[in-house]
């Protein structure tokens, strides 16, 4: 079983839900990413989503766009993100790391080369936002063969007839995008999310994570009641953006601890 699978199995045994925070690698500075990753784990993260900066983040709202721009200004490329993961793995060998980004940096490196390098660096899963299952032939198989879980998105606009196809290509967990829109969008309709998750579970045995629109302990708790994992991105990236560099790690840690309390409250 993959490290992601083990993580979900262990949480399930404890009747707990996963917290998956997102940060963009290289934001706000090259040297802060690995300390931030450790701080996320200390604060209660079960899986880390590490954003690979891209010049044209089409599916992201302004908060994560700016994070990508800051990281690119720090000259962070895919190779650097892999190096950061390897650095993180020197200390932490248990917390799964999922790389999240866009197709082109991976395409440029080559899917096979990337898969081998990512596995060697200690990456567990890969979510390329703009490679849907239809275009993932020769991609998700290569990832799976290398021992990487290909993570795919489902959205409110995904018809039920498509869920099975997406699930067939997917590994690790399903990332349900809870809102139509870009990252950082506003309010969630929990009943609607619950209804969609029920549909997903009919066609898919993988754990279901929910992202988009989770900004505090209360929304984290509400999502944790209906999903297997709570993904939080823009809220954390916003904290990074608004904190003085010397306080970034401690403030992110405090925020994620709060989100953890929310997630755990759902299990009580």
């Amino acid at each position: 079983m993959s490290r992601i699978g083990q993580t979900f199995a262990a949480l399930k045994a404890q009747n707990r839900k996963a917290l998956i925070p997102f940060i963009t690698a290289g934001d706000p500075g090259r040297g802060l990413t690995v300390p931030l990753m450790h701080a996320l784990v200390e604060a209660g993260a079960n899986i880390i989503e590490l954003g690979v900066p891209f010049s044209d983040p089409m599916a992201d709202g302004p908060v994560i766009q700016r994070a990508s721009e800051r990281a690119l200004a720090n000259k962070i490329g895919l190779k650097d993100v892999l190096a950061m993961t390897a650095e993180f793995r020197k200390i932490n060998t248990t917390t799964p790391v999922v790389l999240m980004g866009y197709a082109n940096p991976v395409e440029r490196m080559g899917y096979e080369t990337f898969a081998q390098a990512a596995k060697a660096a200690g990456v567990d899963g890969v979510l390329t936002v703009d490679i849907p299952p239809e275009e993932s032939i020769g991609v998700s198989d290569v990832f799976k063969a290398a021992g990487l879980d290909p993570i795919f998105l489902l959205s409110p606009t995904t018809p039920e007839s498509r869920v099975e196809r997406v699930a067939a290509a997917a590994g690790g967990f399903i990332y349900y995008v809870s809102l139509k829109g870009v990252t950082g969008s506003a309010n969630l309709d929990m009943d609607e999310v619950a209804r969609k998750i029920a549909i997903i579970r009919r066609h898919c045995d993988l754990p279901v994570g929910v992202g988009f629109g989770i900004r505090d302990a209360a929304t984290a708790e509400a999502v944790a009641r209906i999903a297997d994992a709570v993904v939080v991105g823009s809220r954390i990236v916003n904290e990074i953006e608004t904190s003085p560099e010397s306080e970034v790690v401690s403030r992110v840690k405090t925020l994620v601890q709060d989100l953890r309390r929310g997630v755990d409250a759902a299990s009580k």
Partner: peptide, 12 residues
Amino acid sequence: GGIFVAETLMEA
């Protein structure tokens, strides 16, 4: 060519 977009646009 192809369709390289996020899931939300696939159905549209």
